[in-house]
Simulated scan of single mutants.
Amino acid sequence: MALASDPYQGHDATVLLTVVLVGPLVLLGLLVYLCSRLPRRRRPAGDLSAAWRDLSLLAVACALALYLWGCLHLLFVDRQERGTECAKVDGVVRGRGAEAVTGDFVPLRLVCHMPGGRSHTVLVPEYINPSVAVLLLLALAGGLASVLHGRARRTAQRKEG
């Protein structure tokens, strides 16, 4: 919840700017790695653990891209625009604005605390957080499948050799 000294905190500008500047570099690194993994010729059939790993990294890259898209929505909005967005309820500008505004990075959101105890989120598109969550679960499943398949393959190789 917001501090009494500044009820309109939003997101820490330094952290938000750092995420927006460093995030694309990490995303670019992931994409360069994944492009280097594209098959130039057919891979052997036993290389499933690498395919699962690459799928997992692709899901992470997609989640990072969506998260950065949400951060860009927050970066270029000043306090007055936040107040205007907070005053909009159901697309109509209502009377009083928010009593407090708080920002969270996980999940990414800007919450307007309205008079009467109501609150709603603004600026970050609604599809960002659920999509990021699903992509991260897919990345976790792909990483787990990669590890399990790699272990099974190594165990089978030891028994053969």
Rank of each mutant, 00 (worst) to 15 (best):
T84Q: 07
A133R: 11
V22N: 00
E126A: 14
R43T: 05
L74Q: 12
S49N: 09
C86G: 12
V124Y: 05
V124F: 05
A63R: 04
V93Q: 14
H113G: 00
L31E: 15
L64I: 11
E81A: 15
P125M: 08
G91W: 07
V60Y: 04
V111Q: 15
R109F: 00
A13Q: 10
C62A: 14
R37D: 03
S119T: 11
Y67M: 01
L17M: 11
N129C: 01
G10K: 09
W69V: 09
V134T: 15
L30E: 04
H120A: 03
P115W: 04
L28G: 12
R79K: 09
V77I: 15
V20R: 14
E85Q: 10
L16A: 10
H11W: 13
Y127T: 01
G97E: 03
G70F: 06
P125E: 06
Y33M: 04
V22A: 15
V26T: 13
G46D: 14
L28N: 03
D12V: 09
S119W: 14
T102L: 04
S56H: 05
V134R: 13
V101R: 04
V122L: 02
V134E: 02
L38G: 00
S56W: 07
S56D: 02
L25Y: 01
R40T: 11
L48Y: 02
C35M: 10
V106I: 15
C112M: 04
L16D: 02
M114Q: 11
G10Y: 08
V93F: 09
R82G: 00
Q80T: 13
G46E: 14
L25M: 14
D78H: 13
D104S: 14
S49E: 12
T84E: 11
G83I: 01
V134G: 03
V22E: 01
A98G: 09
V20T: 09
P24Q: 05
A13I: 10
R94P: 00
C112Q: 06
W52G: 02
V19F: 10
L17V: 07
R96W: 06
W69G: 02
Q80C: 00
E126V: 12
P44F: 08
A100G: 06
A100C: 07
S131A: 15
V77Q: 11
S36F: 10
V124A: 04
L64S: 03
E99I: 02
G103P: 12
L75P: 08
Y127S: 07
A100E: 08
A61S: 14
V60D: 01
W69K: 02
R53T: 15
S49Q: 13
L66Y: 07
H73E: 10
G10E: 03
S131W: 10
G10L: 11
V134C: 09
A87V: 07
G70W: 03
K88H: 05
V20M: 06
G103I: 08
P107M: 07
D12P: 00
E126W: 11
P130V: 08
V93A: 13
T102K: 12
D54Q: 14
